[in-house]
Amino acid sequence: MINGARAKLLALAIAGLTSLPAAAQSTKLTDGFEGTDFAPEGGLYYRENAEQKAGSVEFQHDVVYEGKGALKLSVKAMCAVDDERCSERAEIWEKTDLRVPYDQGVWHGFAVKLADPIPADDHRYLIAQWKREINPGAEGDFSPFLALRLLNGKLHVTVETNYRPGLEGAKPSGPGACAPKGVPVWLRPDTNQMRALVTADPNWKPEDGELYADCTDKITVVQHNPLPTPDSGWIDFVVYSHPGPEGDGRIELFANGKAITTITGMIGHNDRDLGKNQYFKFGPYRAGHSNDWTVYYDKFRRSPDCADVLAGGACPQF
């Protein structure tokens, strides 16, 4: 027999006065940053912690992609330039109770514009990243399983997974150089991780990828169209992320309505003490620097359904 409290909750739900909690992965989120704070339906917040002290967030109306508002996220000099362990961030997070389970796929969309001057050095620069939760007390620092990055003023995308030995004798020179056997990878056995270079903008040169000195066949990349350059104005990214550390992972990357690349295989980490959810955050993140850095963001959306996120493009069938 249903107890009184549960019976009352069900009755209210049927009456349309309330609803039972939805699974996080089915929750649709949108925020056009039109007002002076984050929209309740967007599920986003600016995280206040020590790493974010170098950052600032502004709801502004001068530089927009769509509508009347967009976010201006900036970082200023705070860390010593030679301190590799220090970072400067102005990142926006999804609320914890809205995170999607690690074994589920989800679509994200957001528009981004890099303000001038665009960083042109070889520091660590990220504009968006997808990660797995780390349980309190877990050992190690796990890189994002998917990240949109800048290096030497060039846009590129990396995918991370657990360490596997590279292909013997295979030495890449850039994205696609390992095909058809695999993709360029930075092997990091000391942290049980490896980072694959899955796509880069057309200005990428072999010397930009010196870090990715091996090849892996644990990840497969199909390139559809070139990645836009960071100086091309607003770029509307759409990403499907479905980690699969055992080999069933899948990522679909779109930009401005065009399919850019499909990544499959071993994606993400399965070490002990890692959490059950994936999470997405966006905003400028870098190692210490002496200059300010600003990036604009607009039109955030998230859904389990591609059609809710990818406007004007053809959703892939898989």
Rank of each mutant, 00 (worst) to 15 (best):
D122I: 03
C178N: 07
T191A: 13
G105D: 08
R124M: 13
D116P: 08
H108D: 12
R188E: 09
E84G: 14
G174T: 09
P180T: 03
Q60T: 06
F59L: 01
A90G: 10
G174P: 05
Q193F: 11
V157C: 13
L114P: 02
G182N: 07
K181T: 08
N135K: 11
D122F: 13
H61F: 04
A147T: 08
W93G: 04
L98V: 02
Y163I: 09
H108G: 10
R164Y: 06
V100Y: 00
A120K: 10
K113D: 02
K154P: 04
L148Q: 09
G105E: 04
A90E: 06
E94G: 15
S56I: 08
V63N: 00
W93M: 14
R188L: 11
M78R: 08
R188A: 04
I118E: 07
C178Y: 02
D62T: 13
Y102P: 01
L71C: 01
V112C: 11
D103F: 04
L150Y: 01
P144N: 12
V157M: 12
C178S: 12
R99P: 00
T158Q: 02
D116M: 11
R89N: 00
N192F: 03
G182I: 02
C86V: 06
T191S: 10
H123A: 09
T161A: 04
L146R: 10
K154R: 15
E139A: 14
Y125I: 03
L73E: 04
N152R: 13
F142C: 00
K68T: 13
F110T: 04
T158Y: 01
G169W: 09
S143E: 03
I127F: 06
V183H: 07
I127K: 00
R149N: 14
D83E: 15
L114M: 12
D103Y: 09
E133R: 13
P136A: 14
G67W: 12
E91K: 01
A90M: 09
A120I: 15
L114D: 03
G137N: 09
N152T: 02
I127A: 06
D116T: 14
R188N: 14
I118Q: 02
H108T: 11
V157I: 10
A90C: 10
P172G: 13
S74D: 13
W107R: 11
I134E: 05
H108Y: 14
D103M: 06
P180A: 11
L197A: 08
S143G: 13
V183N: 02
V63Y: 02
N135R: 15
A70H: 00
P172S: 08
R164K: 12
P101S: 12
W186P: 03
A138Y: 15
G169N: 10
E168I: 14
V159C: 05
K68S: 11
L155H: 14
G140Q: 15
L126A: 11
C178R: 04
D116N: 12
P189S: 11
